[in-house]
Design a protein around this nucleic acid. Sequence first.
RNA 1: CGGGGCAUAGCGCAGUCCGGUUAGCGCGCCUGCUUUGGGAGCAGGAGGCCGCAGGUUCGAAUCCUGCUGCCCCGACCA
Length: 497
Amino acid sequence: MAKEITKRSENYSQWYLDIVKKADLADNSAVRGCMVIKPNGFALWENMRDQLDRMFKASGHVNAYFPLFIPKSFLSREAQHVEGFAKECAVVTHHRLMNAPDGSGVIVDPSAKLEEELIVRPTSETIIWDTYRGWIQSYRDLPLLINQWANVVRWELRVRQFLRTAEFLWQEGHTAHATQAEAVEETLQILDIYTRFAEDYMAMPVIKGVKTPNERFAGAEETYCIEALMQDGKALQAGTSHFLGQNFAKAFDVKFVNENNVEEYVWATSWGVSTRLIGGLIMTHSDDDGLVIPPRLAPVQVVIVPIPKPSPEIGEAAEKVMKALQSKGITVKYDRDDKNRPGFKFAEHEMKGVPVRIGIGLRDLENNQVEVARRDTREKNTVPFDGVADYVGQLLEDIQQNLFNRARQFRDAHTSRVDNFDDFQSLVETPHPEWSESWGGGFISAHWDGTTETELKIKELTKATIRCIPLDAEEEQGRCILTGKPSKGRVLFAKAY
RNA sequence: CGGGGCAUAGCGCAGUCCGGUUAGCGCGCCUGCUUUGGGAGCAGGAGGCCGCAGGUUCGAAUCCUGCUGCCCCGACCA
């Protein structure tokens, strides 16, 4: 059926790369580890960004922009923070080039060495908290609720398009609060926003949880996250929200005077989601025929294909359908290409993930109808011409809901409760030929003794890590699957991206 | 940074071992005709510093030396 897309069951990671390529989302670039996001991919990102931006603003946040470069000394102010990021920083050392004396091109001008080297931001806590010092004096200046849309650079050794690139686009929120309780509340509020976005827009079910100390963000007191399960049984960290305590306030000396005229350090949060979400969206819904995009995020929700090719009569009918759909706020595109045949276009639009396709042919014009095909199930229906807009409007909602239900069923079917280490190992090591040769084993809910030592040992033995301690976990007496020591609740394990 | 591989048309590859006409093939691209309700067929056409720099030779994509870049596997990670 689909040409040139590797089957998921044969080679999942090749399938993933094929989707990115065939759906025309991104290209490799001349710079190792950095990708070019093509118009189709960027349109998807814009829709995600715009929706998140609306949600942030609705909850009182505002946007600002901070510099790309961070003085090297800033990074080392917070000890944990620098340790976490030091190994993946791009560093600017000079500010000028010159012609090579031997005429072989340009070289770095040795006389243009910077007094203090600059780091290309891997995240912006340091430069932002250095700035906040000047903005915050009184409790009346709080809370400070700021978000920025930006690019960051983390010099990763192994990269995969969207999932892990040396440069990526994201949003990073950085808030400042007068009390610990308020900062914690903010952290959780953002986690809810991320959850709503993932589930209601991306149709990607997620588990809300808190990270173990070992997986915590460098410099955070507590890291909350949402974790999703991909089709190959591996987990994807889809978003994080950190309670930073007073760590950055102390490192950058950000104090305020409270209502009682007492000076205190400010409480902080930071939180982010990135273009990685696009990778998550691909690996949640797409199939062997190509990309599947949930309607609420699809740059083109409906495409109209003239059969056999564009003509004045079909164009006229298509125009009416487009107007009717547009009046309901539906994004629709008419495929005017007169070179390729219908079959080719059907396959192409499926590959690109357009949720709904409408076929209009001469036969349809005679019968006063159109053919409507949905991407998620590939079902086709004949619909009377006059009822198209209502039908499609409802269909888009059905698809959105169906994608979420399908993904949730998949996740639930591949979430296991395990009570001994043998079962644990067999789950993460047994391949799943239907879904993926490199099957990760799904989510595994198991008891853990609470120590980093045990966590690392399990990782070493199985490659599975603790994705999170679910927020809704029930208290339950049990024994650690590795050490047999007592445990008060289950945590969620998985192999992760 | 360790281990393995690759570099030839826009993309994917053959040719390299064993040097020798004008460097091929598939896809894509351009033109024309016939087609067109699930990835069309035929005919014609365009497109190459064979990664870079040296060397050996009458002659190098092919042999030698040195670079450079990329990919895969591991260590690090949203």
